[in-house]
Amino acid sequence: MSSGFTIEEPRSVDEALTLLAQGDETVRAIAGGTGLSLLMKYGFFEPATLVSLRHLRSSLADIEVTPDGGVRLGAMATLRDLEDAPIVAERLPLLRQALGRLATVRLRNAAQLGGAIAHGHPQMDTPPVLLALDAQVQVASIRGARTIAAQDMFLGYYETAVEDDELILEVRIPPQGEHRATYRKITARAEDDWPMLGIAALVATDGGRISRARVALGALTDRPMRLPDVESALQGSDPGSDEVEAIARDAAAALDLYDKPAASAAYQRHIVAVHLRRALLEILDLGDGSSKGGR
């Protein structure tokens, strides 16, 4: 009964956590509402209580550099806040690049970082980026606080590691050092379409060799995934274009995919091979006049 729910508007995080600790999975926190309201509209989720976080924004939307040189992103920063933040532009250009092309500006003005994680929809742009950045997600409940690595966060369709009584408070990105990174996605039919594939790729180099590589894919299956084989093939190496092509081809061949209305499994595998090659060529500066992925 979608008309029968109440809205609570707690004034503190503790109050919010108490409201979420009722042992009822139809009590949910709502922030930007861009994900949850769709689920409610289609009748997939019928809440008993919505816990609006709107009075908590002042304390949960900070974007700041941490003492170790990493970045702390408040869970209630809107995607647009992050896109516009000088700290993000300077230290996390990969995140900024992905956000600049995420859905529409109307949506980015409303959607918030915590919700973009908790929603757990597989066809989103932020999860593969957080995986590539080794993000750590801080959550809290009345039982206490804990940290969930982005890599362990996404469990399946609308499923995350966040428990029903937990609230995402912030996301910590460790220092990335000197690196090159790109986020490329395919929206097959129209500019505003959901991504059919998102690739976040990052390499840090040290003396000509790759010291750290991160490659994550989104939108293909029920959750975003790192590609450890690709990362280890890159790590410590100095690959040329032919090797990059082989790495991308092997990675695509190893994927377990399924047919979708807009794309067969074979086509999805094909675009991973093509798109991953292009992404790696770009960040390894092996392309010939490639677009640099900036704005």
Partner: peptide, 21 residues
Amino acid sequence: REDEPAIALPGGAGLTARRED
């Protein structure tokens, strides 16, 4: 043009294509 913004290419906002593709 050589300096065509990527968004003007097929795939647009996804930055999928390079001019030579």
